[in-house]
Design a protein around this nucleic acid. Structure first.
Lengths: 203, 203
DNA sequence: CTATTTCAAGACCGATTGGTTTATATATAC
DNA sequence: GTATATATAAACCAATCGGTCTTGAAATAG
């Protein structure tokens, strides 16, 4: 139930889409990293003037946090559909891993992952970033663990596989994929590696 | 067979240890990352004057490459002892992983890994860095694959485990550990996760 | 001694950094 | 129309960036 945006104040209405600007900024931070992104990069990408950008977002750091939040929201939403409860859990895990293979190939791979890059660049020196990174990894792990639990309940896991530790393994593995994929993004090998890992867990 | 350093030219001899300076610079880049490291940081750490530093290393980028090379050399040397051919291969793999658990705990964990950070920050935009990262991951993978091969020959691997793909899995996993460890560095969990992964491979 | 080389300290450079302010045009409500 | 609010473009800011250069002291060889 969306309404046309109502004018509440008197003056000239905002003429740009804030969320679209956040998304464009996200792409810049994603490609360049936080420190290497300069204001002119953001102005070019968002097509905003300096004044508008600062009025809308405060400063570079705040805009970065909004971009990071958006990146996280997208990632979690994607995982929620991949690892949906109503789906076959092993199918879900395969879809989840297939997504990483895809994001790790060619140009996608070289672009890397904003979360991993941010963790390495800013974690430990920026509390706001720390909170987000930490909660994201926890959320990811919880979802994967859920899928493993359902797989175990369905008798689809190999003997001795514990859902929670399997989930931790998978989370580390996929984040490591993102690192290694920065320089060696070959789809076939990524896919084979992912398959080999999953084969160790499922019956 | 080391000799006392001979004076070949006439003037005042070099009064600082170049390699020690590289190591100090390495520690700065390691803690802060490339972009976030400013010249004053390097001068403070190396206790060199601006002039001396530029005379000895050329520029920031060249010094960074030397620091990265040193980091890589240390890592490879460590791996060569951990995964030594004369050692029990599974023992070697355990030692190798134990090293990552250690480096991933507490302050070590929060400091992260210069290689991973560099891969995320610079790979794809710096050919010299690309070459080094790529060859390091290949070298690491080869050593781990060697250990897995020897383990397989000794009948110590679980059925269906292929040394080369197991090595790729392990490499991704440990690099992912470094990422996740930036914000959640708890030794017990890391160790348990590492054990759980290795258990999937050995008989 | 002189000649030579390296050192630290710091002035200096232009470029760029993130961020603010100003001037002006424009779009709305009343 | 007026008042209000937002837009852009650009001037402007102090601070910092990586890097060079100068100065003068110190340490060596001959």
């Amino acid at each position: 139930m969306h309404r046309a945006p109502v004018q509440l104040s008197r003056g000239r209405p905002r003429s740009f889409d804030t969320e679209a600007a956040v998304e464009r900024a996200m792409n810049v931070f994603w490609s360049l990293g936080y420190h290497a992104t300069a204001l002119p990069d953001l102005l070019r990408a968002t097509k905003l003037s300096r004044g508008s950008l600062y009025a809308a977002f405060g400063d570079k750091h705040s805009l970065f946090l909004r971009a990071l939040d958006r990146y996280i929201a997208i990632a979690l939403t994607r995982m929620d559909t991949e690892l949906d409860h109503r789906r076959e859990p092993v199918e879900g895990l395969r879809a989840y891993l297939a997504g990483y293979v895809d994001r790790n190939s060619g140009a996608n791979g070289r672009r890397g992952c904003l979360l991993v890059a941010t963790a390495m660049e800013l974690a430990g020196r920026d509390v706001e970033v720390d909170r987000r990174i930490d909660s994201f990894f926890k959320a990811m792990e919880a979802r994967v663990a859920g899928a493993f639990s359902r797989a175990k309940a369905a008798g689809q896991l190999a003997d001795g596989v514990e859902p929670s530790s399997a989930a931790r393994i998978l989370v580390c593995f996929v984040e490591g994929l993102r690192v290694v994929g920065k320089t060696a993004p070959t789809r076939i090998i990524s896919q084979a590696t992912v398959d080999a890992l999953l084969d160790r867990f499922i019956r």
